[in-house]
């Protein structure tokens, strides 16, 4: 069995919105501890991983299941969430459906057909990074949007004094500098000066659900995939994006 109740459907919508920009389908691995899922995007450039501890739910009851879901359908349903709706997710094993219920003045139940997916063997690899930057999510997101004016990729640079988001177009370029003591930077731990290029569309998709108050942890190295971590609605999200290499 599986049944979980979340306080805010609207908050969880941000998670589904973000994940569904990168993936078409997902297999939730549900057990008594919570829910996990990870998968590569179809082009194998990005990896998405999410973890929903049972504490993120008001009520939670589950034994082990793999629940395969079409994310386009899930996103459409979550877009119907209203601000005071509670979210109930429950597995209907007889009908082979995942029920998504919005509870407010009444109950609205959407039943999604389960996909026959098996849990991904792809997990976030345990890579050691020389540099870890904690930055206010909206500051980083805005810098990416600025960079998007002139280029389709962005260069992320870090040294012991600052973190820099740089974009170079054919004619124009953009630079956002976040000094170590600026209010956007929570912490800047740099062991090795770094400069790496990443696709902007992917990065912007990865931070789609971020709003002011959210903090992003950026793991950066030279010629390494960038790793982003943040939490939304009690859900821990991790993204890995392969670099562009000269």
């Amino acid at each position: 069995m599986f049944r979980g109740v979340m306080e805010s459907a609207k908050e969880f919508k941000k998670v589904v919105d973000t994940v569904s920009t990168l993936l078409d389908e997902i297999c939730f691995e549900v057990d008594e501890e919570g829910i996990k899922a990870s998968a590569m995007d179809p082009s194998h450039v990005a990896l998405v991983s999410l973890e929903i501890p049972r504490l993120a739910f008001e009520e939670y009851e589950a034994d082990s299941h793999e629940i395969g879901i079409d994310l386009e359908a899930f996103k459409k349903v979550m877009n119907r969430a209203k601000s005071k709706d509670k979210l109930i997710l429950e597995l209907d094993e007889e009908k082979n459906k995942l029920n998504i219920i919005f509870e407010n003045t009444g109950k609205r139940k959407f039943s999604l057909a389960l996909l026959d997916l098996s849990a991904s063997s792809v997990k976030v690899p345990d890579i050691e990074y020389p540099n870890v930057i904690m930055i206010k999510g909206d500051a980083f997101k805005e810098a990416l949007k600025d960079a998007d004016l002139f280029s389709d990729y962005v260069i992320l640079k870090a040294d012991e004094d600052k973190f820099v988001v740089h974009a170079k177009g054919d004619l124009n370029d953009f630079n956002a500098e976040f000094e170590k003591d600026s209010s956007a930077i929570i912490s800047l731990e740099v062991k090795e000066e770094t400069k790496s290029a990443f696709n902007l569309d992917y990065l912007m998709d990865m931070v789609k659900g971020v709003s002011s108050g959210d903090i992003i942890k950026i793991y950066l190295g030279n010629d390494m995939p960038v790793k982003l971590e943040y939490s939304l609605a009690g859900v821990n999200l991790t993204f890995l994006l392969a670099p562009r290499i000269e």
Partner: peptide, 14 residues
């Protein structure tokens, strides 16, 4: 010009 690598290439390289 830089070239997009895949995560799978990257993990194989390591």
């Amino acid at each position: 010009k830089s070239k997009q690598v895949k995560l799978s290439d990257f993990f194989k390289m390591r």
